[in-house]
Nucleic acid binder design. Structure first.
Length: 795
RNA sequence: GGGCAGGUAGCUCAGCGGUAGAGCGGCAGUCUUACACACUGUUGGUCGGGGGUUCGAUCCCCUCCCUGCCCACCA
C-alpha cells in the first residue's frame, strides 16, 4: 500500500472492502451484546423492484446512521428485506404471462399462477438486494426477511384473526374504490386525485306531475344516468323546494325511462351547477349516502371491468364507460334534452398502480377499524416518537383525527389469503352470508369438509404494518425493539408510518421507533418527479460505475437538506467523486512523507501556528457534525466535512506544511498534526463514504481493524490562531497583486515584506511556499519601484 | 375549499436581525514536485412583488404573486 494510484479508482476498492466486511461479519447484530443497541428496519422495497435514486437517498441515510452508531460504540441492527407488493408484482407477472404465453392468470388457475409468481420472485427478487450491497449498505443480511415468508405470513393471518375476534375487522357491502383494470378494491390511500379536463353536461328532465316543467341537471358522468334512482335538490332551495315529493322522468335508457322521485337532501349544494343533482347510489360515494338516507334502490349498471351491463339498456350494454359517455350525450341530444356542454375541469381519482380512473363501486369487502388511534396520536403529540422535520407531525395528526376504516381485502391472488371460511352450500360458490355465527369461521387452519376459504387476499400494507416487530425473533426484540429510527419518504406517512405505530402499540405495547426521519423527494432539474415513463430517472448503478458508490452517496447527501425535495443534478455527483479524490490525494501526500503514526498526538509537540489553527478548526467541525447528527441535518455534516477537508486541511494546512515539513523544528509537530487530523477525518467521513475511508484507513496504517469500529473522535478544544489566518490572507492579497499585474502564476518572484510584528519573520518560509515564490525576504522600509499592498502582517 | 413547503448569483443550494456565502459554470492565468477529478485570481445577486416593525431586515409581521406537495364526497 505504499504506492497509491494517482487518482482514486472506486470499483476494485468497493468490491474488496464489501467482501471483507461480510467476511468479518461486521454487519451482524448480536442480541447478546453488552453494547447499547441501535436499530433500524429498512422500508422494504418491492421484491421485484430495481434501485432508484429515491432508494439511494433513503438507504444511504440509513447506512450513515448505522455506521455512525457502530462508531459511537453501539450494537447495530439494520434489518433488511423486501415486500411482496401484491398488485405491482401480480401485474408484472400477468403481463409477462400474456406476452410470453398469451395466457391470463385464469387460464393457469390460482395454484399454478402463484407458482409462477414465486418463480418470478426467485428470479428477480434478488436484484434490489444486490444493488443495495453495491451502495455499501451495512445491513445484517443474515436476517433478510420477506413479507411472504412462512413465519411472517402466519403472523399476518394470526393478527387478522385476532382483530376479527376483537370485532375490529368486519365484512360489509360498502362503496369502495374499484380499479377496473386490476379488478380489485383499493384503499382510499391508493387513489390519487388528478385534475381532468372534461365537460359539465346540462340536460333536463320532465317533472311528471307537472307537465312542461323541466328540471335542469348538471353532470360530468352522463353515462351513469341509467343507474339514477332519484333527483335531489336542497330542501332550503326556494327554486325547487316545492317540487320535492313529485317525480321526474329519467331519459335513459330510452326503452326504460323510469320514474324518479324528487327528493330533498342537505348534501345538495345549490350553488353548484343548476342546484339539481342526479342521484346514482351505486356509482358515487356521495350519492350512495343520499341513497341510504332515502332508501333508494341501488342500480349497478357496471361490470367489474368498467363496461356497462344489461341494466344499462340495450344501447349501452357492453360499451366501455368512456364510450358510453359519448353515447349517452348523443342520445340526450337526440331526445332534445341536452341543454349544453360546458368545458369543465374536475378531480378524478386514479389508481396509483394502474393509472386509470377508479370507479366507486358497491361491493362486499373486509374492513378494519383501526386499533389504538388515540394512543397513536398521543405517542407523537407527547414526543414518544419524534418526527424530523417536525411539520409532518401535524399531517400525521390530522389524518388520524379524521381516520376512516381501512378496506383491507383485495381481489388478487398474490398476497396473504384472508383466513376466513364459509360453509359450502351447493358445492360451487361460497355463500356470503352476513350471519357469522353459523356460516363464517375466522381461523387460519381449514375447518374441514364443507368449508371454502374466502378467495381474497389482504392489502400489502396489512402485512407491512407489522414489519417493525414481526421481522424479529424474541431475543432480537428484547434487545432492539423499539427501533431507534425509521427513515422513509413522507409519501408513505399514512400507508406505513401511521399504521406501523398503531400495530406496534397494539401488539408490542410500545411504539415501533423513537424517531422518524422523512427524506425529501428526488426530482429532476425541471422539478418533475423521477419516473420511469418520463425516462428522467438516472440508473443509480450507472452512476456508481461512473463516480463510485462513495461519490454518489456523498454528492447526494451534500445536496439533501433536511426533508426538503431535491433537484437532482449529475454535477453534484461529479463533485462527490472529486471530493473522494481530493481526500485520496491528501492521504497520498501524507504517505510520501514517511510512515504514519497511528497514535500521533500533536498536543505533545511544539506546534506551528498553522497546526494549532487546523486543530482548532477540526474541533469546531467536530462539534458542528455532532449537532448535525442530533438534528438529522446530513447536508450540513457533509458540507462541514467538505469545507474542512478541502479548504482548511488541503488548501491551507498542507500548503503551509510543505514549508514546515522542511523545518526540523516544526517537522515532528506538523506530521503529528497531519496524522491526528487524517485519522479523525476518516472516522468522521466514514458513515458518508465508507469505501474510500476504509481503504485509506488501512493504507495509512490505522488498521488492521475496520474503521467503523474505531470509535468516534472526541473533539479537543484549542483556540484559533489569528496569526495563521493573517498569513493566509496576506498570501491571497499578494496573489491578487500579482494577478493585477498580469504576471503568470508560473513565474517565480521575489517578494519583500516589511514585518509588522516580530513573529512574522519566522513565517516567511511558509509564505514563500504559499506564493510559489523565488524568495520572501524581510525589509526595513519600502523599496522604491516595486508594487505593494498593505496586509495584516506588514506591507 | 383548507393546509404545508419553497421562491437568494447562469445552475444546485447555505445563511434566517448587523456591511450578501459555497460549489459548479463563465472569464483570465497555471501541468507550482498529493490531486487538471487540480491550483491561483476574478466576474456574477435592488435575497419573488408591495407594505410594516426596527437605529438597522434576505432574516420578524401583514399582504399579494408564482412553483410544488398534502388533505377535502361539490355532482
Amino acid at each position: 500500500m505504499s504506492a497509491l494510484a494517482k487518482s482514486y479508482e472506486p470499483s476494485a476498492v468497493e468490491e474488496k472492502w464489501y467482501a471483507w466486511w461480510l467476511e468479518h461479519r461486521h454487519f451482524l447484530a448480536d442480541p447478546a451484546s453488552p453494547k447499547p443497541a441501535y436499530s433500524l428496519v429498512i422500508p422494504p422495497p418491492n421484491v421485484t423492484g430495481v434501485l432508484t435514486l429515491g432508494h439511494v437517498l433513503n438507504n444511504t441515510i440509513q447506512d450513515i446512521l448505522a455506521r455512525r452508531a457502530r462508531l459511537t460504540g453501539h450494537e447495530v441492527l439494520w434489518l433488511p428485506g423486501t415486500d411482496h407488493a401484491g398488485i405491482a408484482t401480480q401485474t408484472v407477472v400477468e403481463r409477462a404471462l400474456r406476452k410470453q404465453e398469451k395466457k391470463t392468470r385464469h387460464d393457469l388457475g390460482r395454484e399454478e399462477f402463484l407458482k409462477r409468481v414465486w418463480q418470478w420472485k426467485e428470479k428477480h427478487g434478488g436484484i434490489i438486494i444486490a444493488q443495495l450491497k453495491k451502495l455499501g449498505c451495512s445491513c445484517d443480511w443474515s436476517r433478510e426477511r420477506f413479507t411472504m415468508d412462512t413465519a411472517y405470513a402466519r403472523r399476518v393471518q394470526e393478527i387478522f384473526v385476532d382483530l376479527y375476534h376483537q370485532g375490529l375487522i368486519y365484512r360489509g357491502k360498502r362503496m369502495v374504490n374499484w380499479c377496473p383494470v386490476s379488478l380489485t378494491a383499493l384503499s382510499d390511500e391508493e387513489v390519487i386525485p388528478k385534475p381532468q379536463k372534461g365537460y359539465l353536461y346540462h340536460f333536463k328532465v320532465e317533472v311528471i306531475d307537472q307537465p312542461d316543467t323541466f328540471l335542469e341537471i348538471a353532470t360530468t358522468r352522463p353515462e351513469t344516468i341509467m343507474g339514477d334512482t332519484a333527483v335531489a335538490v336542497n330542501p332550503r332551495d326556494p327554486r325547487y323546494r316545492h317540487l320535492i315529493g313529485k317525480t321526474a322522468r329519467r331519459p335513459l335508457p330510452i326503452e326504460n325511462q323510469a320514474t324518479l322521485p324528487i327528493i330533498g337532501d342537505e348534501a345538495v349544494d345549490f350553488e353548484f351547477g343548476t342546484g339539481v343533482l342526479k342521484v346514482t347510489p351505486a356509482h358515487d360515494k356521495a350519492d350512495y349516502e343520499i341513497g341510504l338516507r332515502h332508501g333508494l334502490p341501488m342500480v349497478d349498471i357496471l361490470n367489474p371491468n368498467g363496461t356497462l351491463n344489461e341494466l344499462a339498456g340495450e344501447d349501452f350494454a357492453g360499451l366501455d364507460r368512456f364510450e358510453a359517455r359519448v353515447e349517452a350525450v348523443e342520445k340526450l341530444r337526440e331526445l332534445g334534452v341536452l341543454v349544453k356542454e360546458e368545458p369543465y375541469e374536475n378531480n378524478v381519482g386514479f389508481s396509483e398502480r394502474t393509472d386509470v380512473p377508479i370507479e366507486p363501486r358497491l361491493s362486499e369487502q373486509w374492513f378494519l377499524r383501526y386499533p389504538r388511534t388515540a394512543e397513536a396520536r398521543a405517542a407523537v403529540r407527547d414526543g414518544l416518537i419524534q418526527f424530523f422535520p417536525e411539520r409532518w407531525e401535524r399531517v400525521y395528526d390530522h389524518w388520524l383525527e379524521n381516520i376512516q376504516d381501512w378496506c383491507i381485502s383485495r381481489q388478487l391472488w398474490w398476497g396473504h389469503r384472508i383466513p376466513v371460511w364459509y360453509r359450502e352450500t351447493n358445492g360451487t360458490s361460497p355463500v356470503r352470508d352476513q350471519d357469522r355465527e353459523t356460516s363464517v369461521l375466522c381461523q387460519i387452519d381449514p375447518p374441514g369438509e364443507g368449508w371454502v376459504q374466502d378467495p381474497d387476499v389482504l392489502d400489502t400494507w396489512f402485512s407491512s404494518w407489522l414489519w417493525a416487530h414481526e421481522t424479529m425473533d424474541e431475543p432480537t426484540r428484547k434487545k432492539f425493539y423499539p427501533t431507534s429510527a425509521l427513515v422513509t419518504g413522507p409519501d408513505i406517512i399514512f400507508f406505513w408510518v401511521a399504521r406501523m405505530i398503531m400495530a406496534g402499540l397494539e401488539y408490542m405495547r410500545d411504539v415501533p421507533f423513537r424517531q422518524v426521519y422523512f427524506t425529501g423527494i428526488i426530482r429532476d432539474k425541471q422539478g418533475r418527479k423521477m419516473s420511469k415513463s418520463l425516462g428522467n430517472s438516472p440508473d443509480p448503478l450507472d452512476l456508481i460505475a461512473k463516480y463510485g458508490a462513495d461519490g454518489l452517496r456523498y454528492g447526494l447527501m451534500r445536496i439533501a437538506p433536511q426533508g426538503q425535495d431535491i433537484r437532482f443534478d449529475e454535477q453534484q455527483i461529479v463533485e462527490g467523486r472529486n471530493f473522494c479524490n481530493k481526500l485520496w490525494n491528501a492521504c497520498r501526500f501524507r504517505m510520501l512523507q514517511g510512515p504514519v503514526d497511528p497514535e500521533a498526538n500533536p498536543f505533545r509537540h511544539e506546534l506551528s501556528i498553522f497546526a494549532k489553527n487546523l486543530l482548532s478548526m477540526l474541533h469546531e467541525a467536530t462539534c458542528r457534525i455532532e449537532t448535525g447528527y442530533a438534528n438529522y441535518r446530513f447536508s450540513e455534516i457533509a458540507q462541514t466535512l467538505y469545507d474542512f477537508v478541502w479548504s482548511e486541511f488541503c488548501d491551507r494546512f498542507i500548503e503551509a506544511a510543505k514549508a514546515d515539513l522542511g523545518d526540523p523544528a516544526r517537522k515532528a509537530g506538523t506530521l503529528a498534526t497531519t496524522d491526528y487530523t487524517l485519522r479523525r477525518v476518516l472516522l468522521l467521513l466514514h458513515p458518508f463514504t465508507p469505501f474510500v475511508t476504509e481503504e485509506l484507513w488501512h493504507g495509512l496504517g490505522f488498521g488492521p481493524g475496520s474503521v467503523q469500529f474505531a470509535g468516534w473522535p472526541q473533539a479537543e478544544e484549542i483556540a484559533r490562531e489569528p496569526n495563521a489566518e493573517a498569513v493566509f490572507r496576506a498570501a491571497t492579497l499578494a496573489r491578487t497583486l500579482r494577478a493585477n499585474y498580469n504576471i503568470p502564476s508560473n513565474r517565480r518572484l521575489r517578494w519583500l515584506v516589511q514585518p509588522q510584528e516580530s513573529w512574522v519573520t519566522a513565517e516567511l518560509a511558509v509564505l514563500r511556499a504559499l506564493l510559489n515564490a523565488e524568495s520572501v525576504e524581510p525589509v526595513d522600509g519600502q523599496p522604491a519601484g516595486a508594487a505593494a499592498c498593505p496586509t495584516e502582517i506588514g506591507v
